[in-house]
Design a binder for these strands. Structure first.
Lengths: 335, 335
DNA sequence: ATGAAAGCGCTAACAA
DNA sequence: TTGTTAGCGCTTTCAT
């Protein structure tokens, strides 16, 4: 029941090439011929087999996107932007998630759907440089997020250190002196490194000693992790007057615990998050957050991959997306 | 620089078939031969071209997923489950979003990436039955969500009427009498129909007159829509003692407004949402919500599509996923 | 157990 | 302007 170019050609009494010309809107086709072929196409209900086209052309119009987790609204929002950015280039997105686990990240970076994807957009968490070095794959990869590698791959991210510094500076400018950091992932020290660095630098600038007891590790980066970290800190007898969280989910989880414990936000504890996800704008106390330019990141990611398609090997680039600090009730209070 | 089966065959001094046998783990291959071929594969860094395989086999191992929007955590969580469910069958997910707009939904249901997807999982909002009738496409489709069609397509959803009824009953059991419904989409009346019906039925059961002025339409289904609807209701002088929202985002948006207006949750206004997204568990007042069995829906969706692959045409099925009402602070108050 | 050859449906040279 | 033909890289009869 599947009808091919040949069937259409037969039906219309022309050659395959001619049908192909019509299907692909080739310029040099007489109107009469176009109409005749089109009728045959309609009558038979012909739809081109894209797989065959892909095989022939060597490109598929599909780009893979591998994110740590979709449950995090930041990544969900980013995915939405990337789907749109890809669509603008007539590309479609093949989706996968890694849970931020190294094996999955390796798997995806080494030959994920070989030859069916034209490129890969990957947001790594635990992946190490060596994993990428061993990559025998030939499709272009672009890296997203905080992790930095000294490897010939494009990398798109905001300036995490600067952003974190601004966030903490904002807290200090409000007179806070004991700024906790929530979300330095337990075990591996690398993720969160840059944001932690920014935290440290801002404290240094202000002549304050960074108190390592105010750094709370988490297992992951979800609401529950933020809640656990905050509870842990308070249970240990620490009472920061401000919290800077690795991301918004951790910040919101922490706010929930502060609320439970009867601590007022921001009077007792001011809170700043990171990512500016939409949930932070509708919490009971709206969340001050670092807002990365997601649309820019998405656009650059897609363009970076596509620009390397033909093996056009320009230098690896480090592309900084813009960011801004959006101040809301969790630091400024109710207007 | 791309190496094919033939190259490997040449290098190993065997036939293409033999290499193919090794690559596909065919049983009848001598160990010696397997080793020899494997070495050639490794030496040349051969990776099979899946596109070619797809063309030959007529299947791609790719299923398309078209959701209204990824920004809604319900759909993001569902997408994550579907990616996993597909992976369990060695399938990968091609992602698209429709914004819940009819044209996009039509586009996606008629020949989206023809012959590169083996099936389509679609969660329609505005799509009409006639749009699906006109479908000339041959790949299996499974429908998700509240919309129901009398068409030969599998459909997977919870019993929306029953779920809504339970939610409203819960509010009534708490002694509430003025239960508003938030989220009857403006313009088109059809989506939200079932949940609105459940609302009406529960009121009827209790001998209460359904007050249409307590039905607030929204443009979309996000936080902002919920906030606007709630504000609209209050500004119009209505003061329900309970709110049943079409989904959690609307509920959370409404809670934000109640909070701003100094109304206490649940003392002044009890709130129930729908979807049980994780954000409802970490809001300042945790949200009571209808919790659909997302994992089940995801699994069924994937299995439904795959089961129809060979054109194996069993009857269209209406599959009901389970649901439960999870009661939290927005109706019960602090423990 | 392995090889030879056909062909999945399409595009791109080349011919006419 | 249209037709013929080769081949993208693979799997799959059919031989051997």
């Amino acid at each position: 029941m599947r009808v091919s170019l040949k069937d259409v050609a037969l039906h219309a009494g022309v050659s395959v090439k001619t049908v192909s010309n019509v299907v692909n809107d080739f310029p040099h086709v007489t109107e009469a011929m176009r109409a005749r072929v089109q009728r045959a196409i309609d009558e038979l209900g012909y739809r081109p087999n894209l797989t065959a086209r892909h095989l022939r052309k060597g490109r598929t119009g599909i780009v893979a996107l591998a994110l740590p987790e979709l449950g995090n609204p930041y990544f969900a929002e980013l995915a939405a932007e990337i789907v749109d950015a890809a669509a603008a280039h007539d590309y479609t997105v093949l989706l996968d998630h890694t849970g931020g686990r190294r094996e999955r990240e390796i798997l995806v970076s080494h030959g994920f759907r070989t030859r069916v994807i034209d490129g890969l957009i990957l947001s790594p968490i635990e992946l190490e440089a060596e994993d990428l070095e061993e990559r025998a794959e030939q499709v272009p990869v672009v890296l997203l997020g905080e992790r930095e590698y000294d490897l010939p791959y494009d990398h798109i991210a905001i300036d995490n250190v600067a952003a974190a510094r601004e966030a903490v500076r904002h807290l200090l400018s409000l007179g806070r002196r004991n700024v906790a950091f929530l979300g330095a992932r337990r075990g591996s020290s690398r993720p969160a490194r840059l944001r932690l660095l920014g935290w440290r630098e801002a404290l240094d600038e202000a002549g304050l000693a960074a108190d390592d007891r105010l750094i709370a590790a988490t297992d992951g980066w979800g609401y529950a992790d933020g809640a656990a970290a905050m509870a842990g800190l308070l249970d240990a007898g620490h009472r920061p007057d401000a919290v800077f969280a690795y991301n918004d989910l951790i910040a919101i989880g922490a706010m929930r615990v502060l609320h439970e414990r009867g601590l007022r936000i921001p009077q007792d504890v001011a809170v700043v998050g990171f990512d500016d996800v939409v949930e932070g704008r509708f919490s009971a106390v709206t969340l001050t957050s670092v807002s990365p330019d997601k649309a820019f990141i998405a656009r650059q990611a897609v363009e970076s991959v596509l620009s390397r398609l033909g093996g056009a090997g320009h230098e690896a680039r480090r592309i900084h997306a813009g960011h801004s600090l959006v101040c809301r009730e969790s630091t400024l209070g109710r207007a």
